[in-house]
Design a protein around this nucleic acid. Structure first.
Lengths: 244, 244
DNA sequence: CTTGCGCATCACGTGACGTGAGGTTCTAGC
DNA sequence: GCTAGAACCTCACGTCACGTGATGCGCAAG
């Protein structure tokens, strides 16, 4: 007689609850090979293997319906590599987030107001860039690739921070470091260009324009609580670009 | 007259959907300051600020009820630092996961069978270590701290991999590198000690014992598909420890 | 033989919204 | 003033991966 598993034993061995096994049974993802005459589930060795595969893929964050499809079709490589790409994106996002907030907590004055201001600015920048992307660049997105865009977005947020430091330190706009930042800023702007003549011409400045179009009223409210104005940074950027 | 926002305008500006605003209204997290006589929501400047705070905290992964509590109590620092600690744990987990799977995809023969075997082993090791922790070490957990345990777990998984390489290369068990691994292995085991005499004596070997108690049947099934047997690695470990 | 754990099936709860259905209101152009 | 269409409203059920009882049968140990 081959080895059979009860629900409880299998659950303990695999690190899941019995309810999870019931759920997998309900949705047809893992139907026990047998049932006893009294209705108790009996899992076969094949079922055990299948469960371990299911849990492995779940640990990678793959949803159950795609696990089912992958297991039935046998094209696991595709699922795994796709999921890895997604994990990479998430990881970079998380990293950026932790870095920024951690930096804030490490400052001399982690006053709640300042902290909140910074968090608000983060989400502002985020929705602002999302705006920019949506505007005329949605098509460009597929071409550039999600990952690359996220990288650019993170870098751009960094440039804003650098620029703000220079502005506060009253660094002359002709400073080579400032000029490097401006050049990179415009490079990133160029990367978002669509190829369309009328759009392209405006894109480089649009990072600033859209802010004025959409964010002025919000900015006023926020600036009363935050430490600096994005508008000032953008003005500084404009001056630096003009001095080029 | 102060500036007022309609639901749609605010949603666009903050990068959320109108439904999200409705939801926040329903649960009392963000109730618009006014309603028109016809029932349309009118958001005040205060509401806008509150929404940006909500979204900022949500980006950190804080659940809505805790956001509400934090905003009403004003103790944001606690929430943010707690959330950061959580993010650190997640980030390390993700990193470890990506590293391992990526390593597998980069091997010469990323055959579906081998890939799956490795994934299965990952989740096996995971549930196995969870077993170890649960057994008599639950109390120790609070003392050591969640983060430290996760770090140890990750390191231990790395040691298994290293040991497997040495075993396959037939490195003599007296090799200094192997001995270093064994020493570290026992150090980690020691870190899990409870202080209780009877328990402590068994903990160092228990990493192997528990496997035999719980995993033999699973291992047999898996080993037919995977490339190596954990039992062999553990035997190699025992030999190395004996040769010390 | 009974005590008590394990297993079974409903069936509703969770979190953070998504997604229509079906009706009202606002805004722009004529 | 009228009309088209965009935007708003309120139910109310769907999603995902289970958690959490309630209630009742089955099964191995003392």
């Amino acid at each position: 007689m081959t080895e059979m598993w009860t629900a409880g034993d299998l659950a303990r061995a695999a690190g899941v609850t019995v309810r999870t096994l019931h759920h997998y049974d309900e949705i047809g993802l893992l139907v026990p090979g047998e049932r006893t005459s009294t209705g108790h589930r009996r899992y076969t060795a094949d079922d055990v293997r299948r469960l371990y595969r299911i849990r492995a893929l779940r640990q990678l964050g793959v949803p159950l319906d795609r696990i089912a499809a992958a297991l039935d079709a046998g094209d696991l490589r595709a699922v795994i590599t796709a999921q890895l790409a997604d994990l990479d994106t998430r990881a970079r996002h998380l990293d950026e987030l932790r870095r920024q907030v951690r930096g804030l907590l490490d400052t001399a004055d982690p006053h709640p107001g300042r902290l909140l201001g910074a968090l608000e600015r983060m989400s502002l920048l985020d929705s602002y860039l999302t705006e920019v992307q949506r505007d005329a660049l949605a098509a460009r997105r597929d071409e550039l690739g999600e990952q690359r865009i996220d990288r650019l977005r993170a870098e751009w947020a960094g440039l804003v921070a650098e620029l703000h430091r220079h502005q506060e330190a009253d660094t002359p706009v002709t400073d080579p470091d400032v000029q490097r930042i401006v050049a990179r800023w415009d490079e990133i702007g160029a990367a978002f260009q669509t190829g369309d003549q009328g759009t392209d011409q405006r894109v480089r400045e649009r990072l600033g324009d859209l802010w004025r179009d959409h964010g002025d009223r919000i900015a006023d409210d926020l600036d009363q609580r935050a430490g600096w104005r994005l508008a000032d940074v953008l003005a500084y950027l404009g001056a630096a670009r003009a001095a080029r």
